[in-house]
Computed example of a mutant assay.
Amino acid sequence: MTKAFPAFSRPGRRSVLAAAGAMLAAPGIPRAQGRFPDRPIQIIVPWPPGGSADLQIRSMGEHMTRALGQPVIVQNRPGVSGTLGPVQVAQQARPDGHTLTQMHLSVLRRPWMMRTPGWDPVNDFTHIIGLTGWLFGCAVKADSRFRTWQEMIAFARANPERLTYTTSGIGTTNHLAMETIQEREGIKLTHVPFRSSNEAVTAALGGQVDMVCDSSTWAPFVEAGTMRALSVWTAERVPRFPNVPTLKELGYDMTVTSPYGISGPRGMDEGVVRILHDAMRDALMTPENAEVRARFDMPLVYLDTQAYRAFVAERVEYEKAMVRRLNITLDG
C-alpha cells in the first residue's frame, strides 16, 4: 500500500540574494565557502525533456541562476527507470555542490529489487531539499470500451492478463501501486513498461496498450478529449478533472504522489548545503514555479534539509518492505 504523507505549511518568503548573502557572512560557515558557487551548477533530471519534473526543475534553475550568480543547468540523463543519472552522481560526482540530481522514490526503492543492492539511498547521497510530487492516474483512449474504473476492473477480472497497461518503468511508484491494486482486486493485468511517461502516453494513444497509469502527461489529452481519465491518485479530486474519482473514493485507501527532491553526492559541506537549500526553497516558492506546478497539478511537498533526510530514511524502510511483500525482483 502506498503511504500518504502530510501536507507542509508554506514558509515565509524572502529574497534569495539576502538569504545567500547572510549565509556567506555567517560565522559558522568556513570562509572558503564564500566562493560557492564558483562555476555552473548542473542538476541531473533522470527523465527525457518535456515532462513535468523537467519543466518544474528548469523553472527553479532560472531563478537560482539569478540568485547565485552562476548558471544552473539542467541536464537530462534518462535510463534504468530514472536511476541512471542519480546513481552516476552518487558514484562519480565531486561533493562540491556543483553537480546535483533530482531524487525520487525509484532511487530509494530499486536497490531492494536487486539481489545485490548497487547503492545505498541514504548514505551514498547528501539529501538537500524536498520539493513536490506528481499527479498520477490511469487514462484510456477516448474511444476505449472502458468508461469507468469499475468497468475496467470487471473486464480484467473476467479476462486475466488480457488488459494491458503501461508505466514509465518496472519498479516505479505507479507500477508498484498497480501491483497493489491487482493484489487487492484479485486480478492480473499485463504490464508494458516504457522509459518515460511521454512514451507511455504515446503507446496508449497509438493503441499499443489499453491504459496508461502514470504521471500527468496524459492530462492535456484528457482535456482535449482524446483520452479519458478513469482515476486520479491524489488525496482529493483534481480541480481540472472534477468528475474523476480518487483511489480512496474507489475503495483503496491509497494516496500516490511520489514526492521528490534534490540531492548531491555524499560528503557535501553543510554550509554549501544551506546555500543550495535556501536558493532552491525560494525558487520553489516563486509564482513562476507555482504556475508550472499548477499546470501539472503537482502538490507542494516542501521539506527542509533535516526533514527531507528523515523522510528519505523512513521511506527507504517502507519501500524495502513493499518490494519484499510484492516479491518484485530485477535479476531473478
Rank of each mutant, 00 (worst) to 15 (best):
Q70I: 02
I153R: 13
E236A: 14
V272A: 02
A18H: 10
P259I: 06
S196K: 02
H127I: 11
G332L: 15
A142S: 14
I29D: 08
R266P: 14
Y318N: 05
R157H: 15
P111Q: 04
Y165P: 15
P287F: 06
P121T: 07
V192Y: 12
I73F: 08
S196F: 01
S81G: 00
G130E: 10
V122N: 00
L276C: 11
L135W: 00
P265I: 04
V292K: 07
G51D: 13
A177D: 14
Q56C: 12
Q33D: 07
P11C: 09
T164A: 15
P239F: 00
K320F: 06
P160S: 09
L84W: 01
E199G: 09
S197A: 15
D54K: 05
A219P: 10
E319V: 04
P11N: 03
P242S: 11
R184P: 01
T226Y: 11
H63L: 03
R94D: 14
R266D: 11
M254L: 13
D96Y: 04
M227H: 07
P27C: 05
R109S: 10
F194Q: 07
M211P: 02
F36D: 05
P11A: 08
I57Q: 03
A294Y: 08
Y260G: 14
A310H: 10
F311C: 08
E317R: 09
S168M: 09
G206I: 02
Q306F: 00
